[in-house]
């Protein structure tokens, strides 16, 4: 057992109080202050209501779900799925150049700022508003839904994709440039293989998200299962409403599992060496 060495300067170097004031700690404190400040939002109507009773009475309307409408719901669900698929497809195509323009590692500064501003603008407008605009333009049908969801998801996918491009190590693309690749080739061979699994996984997530959104945009008449949802809600047919929800849940869960499975396959392959060691 060796004799314990004293620290080189004799005193243990403590962290000074002002050194603890980093961005993380300060913003955490500000958030906690904001929580206290926001407590008035919890105020209800002020009347003495039986919250639990209200909830149970309303939730009771949903049970048992009325499966007699299964056929209609399935048809609407297929239409919703088609809307979501088309919207995701167009959104991927549209957001791709937008994302490349918005990635700091790919584009010059002015283009990044412009592209990000466009994407922020698109994201700011909720899908329901996009749907209202689309219905006003092409009428109340599934095309309106596709248009609405396309715009809406372009804003999101553009953001996700440009994050994916930025997460890729640019050194490899630079090294390809050094042996004569043009910018497109450097992107295709140096960055794209790395970004591809991320892009695909985000696209699948968007598809799943679009199915959920498609249920919402249907409320303003943009086709799909939302029309059913709105109709049953309007006529207070909560048992049929519950059936619709169950089917949406089933489809979304299915896609979620599928996406998870694909993600796992890809990451497993990328980490195989790390796991083996």
């Amino acid at each position: 057992m060796t004799k314990q060495q004293p620290p080189p300067h004799g005193r243990f170097p403590d962290v000074k109080w002002h050194e603890r004031l980093n961005v993380l700690n300060v913003s955490l404190v500000i958030f906690l202050v904001a929580v206290v400040f926001s407590s008035p939002a919890l105020q209800g109507s002020g009347r003495d209501l039986d919250y639990l009773g209200n909830f149970l009475r309303f939730a009771g309307n949903f049970f048992p779900p009325d499966f007699s409408v299964t056929g209609v719901v399935l048809l609407a669900l297929v239409e919703t799925f088609q809307m979501a698929v088309m919207a995701t497809f167009f959104a991927v195509i549209l957001s791709f150049p937008l994302a490349a323009a918005g990635a700091q590692t790919v584009s010059p500064k002015w283009l990044v700022v412009t592209a990000r501003m466009i994407m922020n603008l698109i994201r700011t407008i909720p899908s329901l508003i996009w749907a209202l605009i689309a219905v006003a333009v092409v009428g109340a049908n599934s095309l309106a839904g596709v248009i609405a969801l396309t715009f809406y998801s372009t804003g999101y996918l553009g953001k996700f994709f440009s994050d994916a491009f930025e997460s890729v190590d640019v050194q490899i693309a630079k090294s390809l440039r050094a042996i004569g690749a043009d910018p497109v080739q450097a992107f295709q061979h140096g960055m794209w293989p790395h970004a591809k699994p991320l892009v695909w996984s985000y696209s699948l997530w968007m598809l799943e998200y679009n199915i959920r959104s498609a249920a919402i945009v249907g409320i303003v008449g943009a086709g799909g299962i939302g029309v059913q949802l709105f109709f049953y809600q309007d006529y207070q047919m909560w048992d049929k409403f519950a059936t619709v929800l169950i089917f949406i849940l089933a489809l979304v869960t299915l896609l979620d599992f599928l996406g998870e499975w694909i993600r796992k396959k890809v990451t497993n392959r990328m980490n195989r060496r790390a796991l083996a060691e």
């Binding site: 490899i172 090294s175 061979h189 140096g190 293989p193 790395h194 591809k196 392959r269 990328m270």
Partner: peptide
């Protein structure tokens, strides 16, 4: 020196 291969290609 560090090869600069595209890892998942």
């Amino acid at each position: 020196q560090n090869f600069m291969l595209t890892p998942n290609n």
